[in-house]
Amino acid sequence: MGMFTELAIMYTKYKPERIMEHLKLYWSRINIPKVITACEEAHLWPELVFLYVHYDEFDNAALTIIQHAADAWEHASFKDIIVKVSNVELYYKALRFYLNEHPLLINDLITAMMPRIDHTRVVSMFLKSDNIPLIKPYLLAAQHTNNKSVNEAINDLLIEEEDYEILRDSVDQYDNFDGIALAQRLEKHELLEFRRVAAHLYNKAKRWRQSLNLSKKDKLYKDAMTTARLSGSTEIVEDLLRYFVESDNKPCFTACLYTCYDLLHPDVVMELMWRNGLTDQAMPYFINLTREYQSKMDTLTKEVAELKLKVAKQEGANAGGLPADGAGLLGPAGLGSRLMITDSQYRGSTLPPTYNDSFSGPSQQF
Rank of each mutant, 00 (worst) to 15 (best):
N213K: 11
E89R: 12
K216V: 12
V197A: 10
L182H: 05
G277P: 04
S211K: 00
A70H: 07
E160T: 10
P332L: 11
F194R: 08
Y258V: 04
K222V: 08
V171N: 02
L7F: 06
I36V: 12
N249D: 15
R209A: 11
D218V: 08
F4E: 04
I36E: 10
L289D: 15
D175Q: 14
P33I: 14
R338S: 01
R207D: 12
E190H: 00
L309P: 00
Y138P: 04
D59M: 09
N155C: 05
H200R: 02
Y98M: 14
H200W: 10
T299V: 13
A305W: 08
A69S: 14
E57V: 04
E235W: 04
R196K: 13
A181I: 00
K79P: 00
E161Y: 13
F50K: 01
Y138T: 04
S129G: 00
K79A: 15
P251R: 06
D298F: 09
A38H: 00
Q294P: 03
E271Y: 05
K313R: 08
G321W: 01
D156K: 07
S358C: 11
K79V: 14
P332K: 06
A8L: 08
L51M: 05
W274M: 15
V83G: 01
L7Q: 06
L186P: 14
G320K: 10
T301D: 14
K216L: 15
E292F: 03
L264P: 04
E271I: 01
L48M: 09
H43T: 06
A305H: 09
K34S: 15
T64C: 09
K15P: 02
F177D: 00
